[in-house]
Amino acid sequence: MNDVVRFESVGLRYGLGPEVLQDVSFSLDSGSFHFLVGASGAGKSSLLRLMYLAQRPSRGYISLFGRDISTTPRHELPGLRRKIGVVFQEFRLLPHLSAFDNVALPLRVVKARESEVKRHVEELLAWVGLKDHMKARPSTLSGGQQQRVAIARAVIAKPKLLLADEPTGNVDDHIAGRLMHLFGELNKLGTSVVIATHNEALVRSSGKRVLKLADGEVRILENIADDDADEFDSVFAADRGRVLL
């Protein structure tokens, strides 16, 4: 089995509220690249939370890298999480640490040698255009700069699965292009990538497969330019309507 992620009849509810995800079933192959789309409130963030082990499902089966997470002992979860890079929508940078230390965090928790940490972090921060902001605290950086620090932190440990929630939401087109190029390069190296986004143009131009989340269920759209064009359009139609109003 070559699945990086497998969901089978997964349901999720918060407390006693209604199910935000119902009978979600899909699998992602190793080295795949997917965009996750859905209307606001469709449950994209909840789905991502399940994938980066921030949340246990209310029901159903989830496996990551071939491990059933419901039977994985708690002390083995960090090992799984180290294979996952996450870019949070709200960045979640540690405010008391510099950009350098934020990006270094995933390497330091695995006790990497400090010389290695320095080399990798400096290289990556330079690559995302933050060479001159290594010592800056997040509060002194712009939204776009913070987002790039968050992305650098997510990819520094060369994860096998990269999950990003609106990673291009706060950057200009040039930086967005560079970031997508970075994700593409990681994908070529074997990292499976899932990017949650509202950016219709970005998804269309990429030609990648799409995970469509609607009514608490997930469908994989293989070809949005042709067979699945209508279904893909329906995701953004509601948003376009809201903009026009």
Binding site: G79, V86, V109, A157
Partner: peptide, 16 residues
Amino acid sequence: RDTIEVMHFVGAHDAY
């Protein structure tokens, strides 16, 4: 709590 969560997400063990 937020910082601890982030540390968990980047793979920190409880002992760390």
